[in-house]
């Protein structure tokens, strides 16, 4: 069907596998995300903390620079699991939260409010592929600002320092990946669920923000009233700290809750969000 012919003809070319469809959704959604200059600026800023930390690690091993800047050696930070957990991982996790809050609610709600789901689901793409394609955006962007720079820093440190350091601390890169993925997936599913149920993007962002912070406020209130760590079981802030500390093998500064409880919290939130999402991702609403 050449343009000049203006006559209808079918398509006789190659049709690709259905496995490629989530990738198509990812590609288009990613392009939409980066069409916002504000987001692009924010995303670039997310790399500044890792860069600062890289400089700190570099300075740790550069005596000439330390003497030049007249910095006392005893006040240098120790690059260990605690450094990666509390200086690198947790701050980057909250940047992920901001990123997900910005991007997540805009991924599904426009499709629902504009009735685009029947267009997706009438094609060789199912609900799972659709959600996976959207999730992939958050997963990739989140990874780029959490465990990928963390790994680069770890490798950088291992390269500058003693070679056995990495072998003796293999749990650190592992903890970085696992904690990042748990956090990103949990927040992403929550934001997608909110996005599916709240059609207005701004309101969906507010809901997502409120859900995370109100749960933490509720946890703090429960702890103040009843004491112990029971309040931490509904708190995103405490659960994140406990999970990261547990995986890195350092002491949590916010709660005495066992790590298992924090995993349970994230799994529960993810499962609930998935159920809510599954109920909403359909071609048509059926009014009984």
């Amino acid at each position: 069907m050449a343009i000049f012919q203006h006559a209808y003809q079918g398509f006789h070319g190659q049709i690709s596998s259905t496995l490629r469809q989530p990738w198509v959704i990812f590609r288009y959604a990613l392009a939409d995300v980066f069409s916002s200059k504000l987001f692009t600026a924010f995303f670039v800023l997310c790399f500044i903390p890792p860069l600062v930390m890289m400089c700190m690690i570099y300075m740790n091993y550069n005596l000439e620079m330390l003497s030049l800047l007249n910095l006392p050696l005893d006040k240098l930070i120790t690059v260990d699991a605690n450094f990666f957990a509390h200086w690198m991982q947790i701050p980057q996790m909250w940047l992920v939260f901001t990123l997900v809050m910005f991007v997540g609610p805009a991924l599904i709600s426009p499709d629902i409010s504009n009735n685009a789901l029947p267009l997706y689901l009438s094609r060789p793409i199912n609900k799972t592929n659709y959600v996976f394609g959207k999730l992939l955006v958050l997963l990739v962007l989140g990874s780029l600002i959490t465990w990928i720079p963390a790994w680069l820093l770890i490798l950088f440190h291992a390269n500058l320092g003693d070679q056995p350091w990495l072998l003796n601390n293999l749990h650190i890169p592992l903890a970085s990946v696992v904690s990042s993925l748990i956090w990103i997936i949990c927040l992403s599913m929550l934001s997608l669920a909110v996005s599916a149920w709240v059609k207005w993007k701004a309101l969906a962002r507010l809901f997502f923000f409120g859900f995370v912070w109100l749960s933490s406020a509720l946890g703090a209130a429960i702890e103040n009233i009843y004491g112990g760590w029971k309040g931490s079981t509904v708190s995103f802030i405490d659960s994140l700290d406990v999970m990261v500390s547990g995986l890195y093998g350092v002491t949590s500064s916010s709660s005495s809750m066992p790590s298992t409880a924090s995993y349970l919290f994230f799994i529960t939130v993810t499962v609930l969000a998935t159920v809510l999402l599954a109920r909403k991702i359909r071609a048509f609403e059926v009014n009984l």
Partner: peptide, 28 residues
């Protein structure tokens, strides 16, 4: 499938929208 109600993805140009739908249908 051409649905009865308006069904679009906002913010997209016509060509990009139709191209996306083509790719989702399996076209390169």
């Amino acid at each position: 499938y051409m649905p009865e109600r308006d069904a679009f993805i906002t913010g997209m140009t016509g060509i990009r929208f139709v191209r996306l739908m083509g790719e989702l249908s399996g076209l390169s």
